[in-house]
């Protein structure tokens, strides 16, 4: 199994074998965390530019740590999204970054498809760290990794994703990844936050968590944003909480070994209550740790040369 891609733009176009290779590679990367010297020289001399057009701490730090543990040099560039619409074109920006010698550009952008716009135009490897409502492949990979680590498999599991599916790149990447590896996916949320055509992606849609909770092996709770109220998609955060907020009582009928996940940052008391987030079934902190390992694996696999004549 080889990994011959230049970029990681999403999981929609990856094969199950490619996803599995990333997950297996991440296992070895995670082993490094137990060493006293947590850094390996693999990407010495390589430069990773982390270009974020949206504020984010978790993902940015995770990528930065991943790159540093592989000995790459990292540069952070943050640009506010307001400057995107009118300022320098993103194509010019990344061409400049490429000219400065970036081997990788890790990009987060509020507009779906922004990484695709630049991927054909430059030779640096592009890693999508979240584009609009489209994909967030490394988050889904770390979710898959975390599920596999906890459950030993993905195939055959029933995974529920609760919340704002329409606006969620995490949900989309998770749907592709989970389906490719053989899981069953259930989307749970209000109809205003689930795309009309969601079921054409091969998932099942529920408007009530109670109707499906007892079947689920894993529940992935998405962050709900206040703007949804302004867009008339929700009457209020409190009403959302009263119907979809994941609380202990709502989990009464769930399996004892239900795995509880959240991509963070959490709104405690809105989409999830503290007793649930802090329960022994929650693997939310382990997800964060796994994120570094998965991102190291992605950097490692994309960095390889394309010539296999070896001595």
């Amino acid at each position: 199994m080889r990994f011959e891609r230049k970029d990681l733009l999403g999981l929609e176009n990856l094969t199950a074998d490619e996803i599995n290779l990333i997950l297996e590679t991440a296992v070895s990367m995670k082993e490094l965390f137990t060493r006293s010297v947590k850094k390996v020289p693999t990407l010495r001399g390589k430069t990773v530019v982390i270009l974020f057009y949206e504020p984010s701490t978790r993902t940015r730090v995770s990528f930065e740590l991943a790159a540093k543990r592989l000995s790459a040099d990292t540069v952070n560039i943050s640009s506010s999204s307001s400057s995107v619409a009118k300022g320098e074109s993103i194509i010019d920006t990344v061409k400049t970054i490429e000219a400065l010698g970036a081997d990788f550009i890790v990009i987060r952008h509020p507009s779906s498809g922004a990484p695709h716009l630049i991927s054909n135009r430059i030779s640096s490897s592009i890693i999508n760290a979240g584009d609009g409502m489209h994909e967030h492949p490394t988050q889904a990979l770390l979710d898959l990794f975390s599920i596999k680590e906890k459950k030993g498999r993905i195939a055959g599991l029933k995974v529920g994703i609760v919340g704002d599916i329409s606006h969620s790149r995490v949900a989309r990447s998770n749907i592709w990844g989970l389906k490719k590896l053989g899981a069953e996916v259930f989307l749970i949320g209000p109809p205003t936050l689930i795309p009309r055509d969601a079921e054409t992606l091969g998932v099942k849609v529920y408007y009530r968590l109670e109707k499906i909770i007892k079947k689920l092996d894993v529940i992935n709770i998405l962050r709900i944003q206040r703007e949804r109220q302004k867009d008339q998609l929700l009457p209020s955060m409190e009403e959302y909480n009263s119907i979809f907020g994941v609380s202990l009582s709502r989990l009464e009928k769930a399996r004892n070994d239900l795995v509880i996940m959240h991509p963070g940052p959490m709104n405690r008391g809105i989409e999830v209550t503290s007793p649930v987030a802090d329960s022994k079934n929650a693997i939310i902190n382990e997800q964060v740790k796994n994120g570094v390992a998965v991102r190291m694996a992605v950097l490692y696999l994309l960095a390889g040369g394309k010539n296999e004549n070896i001595a």
């Binding site: 929609e12 779906s112 498809g113 409502m133 489209h134 994909e135 989309r172 795309p195 992606l201």
Partner: peptide, 13 residues
């Protein structure tokens, strides 16, 4: 257009 393709691409329909 709002439909399967917009859902996949994460573009507003």
């Amino acid at each position: 257009n709002e439909g399967r393709t917009s859902t996949i691409l994460g573009l507003r329909g």
